[in-house]
Design a protein around this nucleic acid. Structure first.
Length: 840
RNA sequence: GCCCCUGUGGCGGAAUGGUAGACGCGCUCGACUCAAAAUCGAGUUCCUAACCGGAGUGUCCGUUCGAGUCGGACCAGGGGCACCA
């Protein structure tokens, strides 16, 4: 056995052995209990980054631990391979997106393999494989047949110079990121998945996801945004305009109906558009509203704009009460009815609007009847008691709301309803590098699904990216097809699917990969739902919500027997690193910063001063990334893995530190030295035995709870105990067990040690050690002795000592006697085997 | 603006309402060495020269025999949503 563990030799050796033995290939036919451990699959952007290393290390520890516990584990890997960066690379470098993506996959696969992850590579696929996206197209057709796909007009960001549709992240300060031209809004007819039909189910389902972080559940709850309220129509007072006899509105506060002072329409409301057709001033106002940017900053600072249409509506509870109808830029067409009634006294936006345009502000809610005429200085949105509200006066807000809904429903002019913030999922992307939407547009028949025997609709390879826009659109032959229904000339849909569709069912394809179907139900149900899903919190809403929707849709169509795809979810923190900036605002890479005398920070190359910024997520733009590969070269996979798991709780951010990775590398050698010191010991060491059993229990519990930092700490404690112990048979057993406990985290070291200890087979196939619960407790305990809750002494006592004896023992302490000063204690509290508290 | 989370040594962090600071990093001193690296040993919350003792988990108040932990108010940092009626 060598003095030092040599990862450069050991890592590849064991990686090859695992691969040859197919150690981590999941067998769907195995009689063992099954479990599915999944980390969010990566986008093949070029190279693995530290965030990937952390994510996949965590999943790997759990997968290896479950295997040792006797589970048949499915732990697959693949590639979320469609997306914009590939097209950007195509435009910048003149390469084909497919070639670029495949090259990246090859690089990243090799990088992942060097980390020794226990992955089932036999199930690997990329979402850009026609074998994958062809099945996705079939699922899209299934959704169409189930009525869950719809076609609607929707606004997109249009770059008028590049003549192309931009994604939101391509719009910077309201301008196209390449052309710099001000972005316009354009309406396009696009495909939507009806996720809103599942809004309530998706909301209710959250309640059962008790192995998900509360934070994520709350974020999804807010995103779905359920609110109850009243929907009703105001009758127009004068002539009917635009064909509608009234204006439908939605409110969550029907109790404030007597505080209404105006009705406001969204600029996109059909009535507003009808009025604009006849009135150039209104048309001008609508144009002004449309000109505003769509960015957050624009919306935040946008001034409330309104236009009085001159129309009036009748108050539902008083035929003589007229309210003016305005068009207001803050009213959203997509929510509720696209119109609302304004109650300035009790809504912040309505208040601002009323102040600006001189509309009445009428108090209808107060803390009590005595405050009915208190002045309104700002919008008061808290519930209270109805005032100045006729038959509602004196009712609490909740009661008043119910009363208004009751009367509206009884009189038939309104209805209590539920509204959701959630919108249907627009899946059309005007891009090349995605799954082609399997639809053919026929002038006679309209949009028709591609016949299933013509799937997959394969992306054409002969495309060019020298002109902006979607190359599918201008492809000479690919677009031209015959209508499957009438055989007349038709045109292929050139939009591709949102890449979130690709990631909404990949976990099913990992579990089961038949050639003729997206998945095999029986086989998929062997594995799903995913027992533990691990990934970044940035996917808390969209990806996780879409995957939940997709799974529920499959369940509704009778294709799977479960509704939720991910039983357990864990969101890990980011890998961060310090940042530096030069005075002109340039980011400077941390390894180019030098600490000159007196803590003066300068850029090495130029000698220019730099300032230390915040510790931030590693990103290329901030120049604070660390490429994992050279670190693996230098320290070995196990040291990198160990570092990823130590110290920081996995849900929190982990700050990169070369000192910490050196510490991890030192620990790897420490274990190796202990292995070298094993053997030949005689006799037992009961104290060490106890510590060993405690460590087995603690490490297992920590991994079960995904508290890897605690598992690592327990392993350190055991290591310290072994090092301090004299040679014995107990110590040899402890060393052997230590290797087992560390093997999920440092598998190469563990294999090497296992073989050095002359153990049978590979440690990858060894069972997890068991512990004796009786060994977890000591025969003697240290009792804390407190006086008035302050620690004054500790005493050794036999476990299970009677209360009276413990009290006597504590009172015998000279320190206690000194505190008591001769007085008798007023009260004594004894917590068996823990403490005695004497109240003086 | 609304919703949510987090504040513990020099640093990352441990602590079923019951001995605060496990474990790691860093640092200090010592051993080994011609020397260094590696390794090993001791120490490391603060105040007090040291002992004794006192203080201490963002701040203030409360509940309790006992609070890092529970409740309230505040301060600071972070996250999500964002003109959602």
């Amino acid at each position: 056995m060598t003095d030092r563990f040599d990862p450069a030799a050991a890592d590849p050796r064991w990686q090859k052995r695992w691969e040859e033995a197919k150690s981590f290939s999941a067998d769907s036919g195995s009689p063992k209990p099954k479990t599915y451990v999944l980390e969010m699959f990566p986008y093949p952007s070029g190279r693995i980054h530290m965030g990937h290393v952390r994510n996949y290390t965590m999943g790997d520890v759990l997968a290896r631990y479950r295997r040792m516990q006797g589970f048949e584990v499915l732990h697959p890997m693949g590639w979320d391979a469609f997306g914009m960066p590939a097209e950007n690379a195509a435009m910048e470098k003149g390469v084909h997106p497919g070639g670029w993506t495949r090259a990246n996959i090859a690089t990243m696969r090799a990088q992942l393999k060097r980390l020794g992850f226990a992955l089932d590579w036999t199930r690997e696929f990329a979402t850009c494989d026609p074998e994958y996206y062809g099945h996705e197209q079939a699922l899209f057709l299934d959704l169409m047949e189930a009525g869950l796909v719809t076609r609607k007009e929707s606004e997109v960001n249009w770059d008028p110079v590049d003549m192309t549709v931009l994604a939101n992240e391509q719009v910077i300060d309201g301008k196209g990121w390449r052309s710099g031209a001000p972005v316009e809004r354009r309406k396009l007819s696009q495909w939507f998945l009806k996720i809103t039909e599942f809004a309530d189910e998706l909301l209710e389902g959250l309640k059962d996801l008790d192995q998900w972080p509360d934070k994520v559940r709350l974020m999804q709850e807010n995103w779905i945004g359920k609110s109850r309220g009243l929907k009703f129509s105001f009758r127009l007072a004068g002539a009917v305009v635009g064909g509608a006899p009234g204006i439908e509105v939605f409110t969550t506060r029907p109790d404030t109906i007597f505080g209404a002072s105006f009705v406001a329409l969204s600029p996109g409301h059909p009535l507003a558009e009808a009025l604009a057709a006849e009135n150039p001033d209104i048309a001008g106002f609508l144009a002004k509203c449309a000109a505003g940017g769509t960015s957050e900053a624009d919306i935040e600072t946008a001034e409330k704009l309104g236009f009085d249409t001159g129309l009036e509506v009748v108050h539902p509870f008083d035929p003589d009460w007229r309210l003016p109808v305005w068009i207001a830029n803050f009213v959203l067409m997509e929510y509720g009815a696209g119109a609302l009634y304004g109650v300035p006294a009790h809504d912040a936006r309505d208040f601002e609007f009323a102040v600006k345009y001189g509309l009445p502000i009428r108090r209808v809610v107060a803390t009590g009847p005595e405050d009915a005429f208190a002045a309104i200085t700002e919008a008061e949105t808290d519930p209270g008691v109805a005032v100045n509200s006729r038959f509602l006066d004196g009712m609490a807000t909740a009661e008043a709301m119910a009363e208004v809904i009751r009367r509206a429903e009884a009189a038939g002019w309104g209805k209590g309803t539920t509204q959701y913030r959630l919108r249907d999922w627009g899946v059309s992307r005007q891009r090349y590098w995605g799954t082609p939407i399997p639809v053919i547009h026929c002038e006679q028949c309209g949009p028709v699904g591609v016949p299933r025997d013509q799937l997959p609709v394969v992306l054409p390879e002969d495309v060019s990216f020298d002109v902006p826009g979607n190359p599918l659109d201008r492809h000479p032959s690919w677009t031209k097809v015959d209508c499957p229904q009438c055989a007349g000339p038709a045109r292929r849909e050139t939009d591709t699917l949102d890449t979130f569709v690709d990631s909404s069912w990949y976990f099913l394809r990992f579990a089961s990969q038949p050639a003729n179907a997206p998945f095999d139900r029986a086989e998929a149900e062997q594995w799903l739902p995913v027992a533990q899903y691990i990934g970044g919190v940035e996917h808390a809403i969209l990806h996780l919500l879409y995957a939940r929707f997709w799974t529920r849709a499959l369940e509704h169509m009778g294709k799977v027997g479960f509704a939720e795809p991910f039983q357990g979810l864990f969101t890990q923190g980011m890998v961060t690193h310090e940042t530096y900036r030069s005075p002109d605002g340039r980011w400077v890479a941390p390894d180019e910063v030098e600490d000159r005398e007196g803590g003066r920070l300068v850029e090495r190359a130029t000698g220019a001063p730099v300032t230390r910024g915040r510790v931030e997520k590693m990103s290329k733009s901030k120049k604070n990334t660390i490429d994992p590969e050279p670190i693996v070269d230098k320290y070995g996979a196990d040291a990198v893995r160990w570092f990823m798991l130590s110290d920081s709780p996995p849900e929190r951010d982990l700050e990169w530190s070369i000192a910490a990775i050196e510490g991890a590398a030192r620990f790897v050698q420490r274990v190796w030295r202990l292995v070298g010191a094993a053997g030949g010991g005689d006799g037992s060491d009961p104290a060490l035995d106890r510590k060993l059993h405690r460590a087995i229990a603690a490490v297992g519990a920590a991994i079960d709870g995904l508290q890897f930092n605690k598992a690592v700490a327990s392993i350190y404690e055991l290591t310290n105990a072994i090092e301090r112990a004299a040679p014995s048979a107990s110590r040899d057993e402890a060393i052997r067990t230590l290797v087992l406990l560390a093997s999920p985290m440092a598998p190469h070291l563990a294999e090497e040690a296992w073989s050095a200890l002359k153990q049978e087979g590979m440690i990858a196939d060894a069972p997890w050690p068991s512990y004796d619960p009786a060994m977890l407790v000591d025969e003697t305990v240290t009792l804390a002795v407190q006086v008035n809750g302050k620690l004054r002494d500790t005493v050794e006592a036999a476990r299970g000592l009677a209360k009276e004896d413990a009290e006597a023992l504590a009172l015998a302490s000279p320190k206690v006697q000194a505190q008591l000063g001769g007085n008798a204690p007023r009260k004594v509290i004894v917590v068996p085997d823990r403490l005695v508290n004497i109240v003086a």
